[in-house]
Amino acid sequence: MAEFEWPWQYSFPPFFTLQPNADVRRTQLDSWCALVVSWGKSNSVSQIDVTEASSLPVFKNNAISRALPVDGIKVVLDELAKRGNLEWTDKTRRRGYLLWRSPSEWGQQIYSWAQSTSRINNVCTLYEINQGDESADQEFHGLDGDILLKALKTLEVTGKAELMDFGDNQGIKFL
């Protein structure tokens, strides 16, 4: 995987202080959201825990010894949730899925992959989709299981697939 290229804001000290000026703050949060999403994508981070977030390199730049304070991290994560790039897994908002692509987008991608590999009307396991050899070159390879399930459920809703349960294993039939 290519080295993640930090944006210029990452080495700009005021980036790590939430700006009081409303206009400036909006721009700053835009930059933060973009940074977190692209960083998550590049490092395949799918879940973020608020308590652990402060140790993530994205919120901390040791080179200029600046770190976004916990309050700031919460603001950024809330902003991400507002924009649909983050989904809280619990009501207390301590953990969340980082969605650098929405579930329906994932679903679309998986469906077109299924089409191109002629899996329509066939059944395959979820493991095959995100871990199997045949999807190794796909973007959703290595995707978090929960997010994958979400993506497939969107396909089920639109009638493009059918989820099946085989005891402790799950499968899907593309229609």
């Binding site: 000290p13 005021p14 790590f16 202080t17 700006q19 009081p20 000026n21 400036v24 700053q28 010894s65």
Partner: peptide, 11 residues
């Protein structure tokens, strides 16, 4: 800062 010409850095 109020005029959005400066940004602060609290450390």
């Amino acid at each position: 800062e109020r005029c959005a010409k400066a940004v602060r850095d609290e450390s």
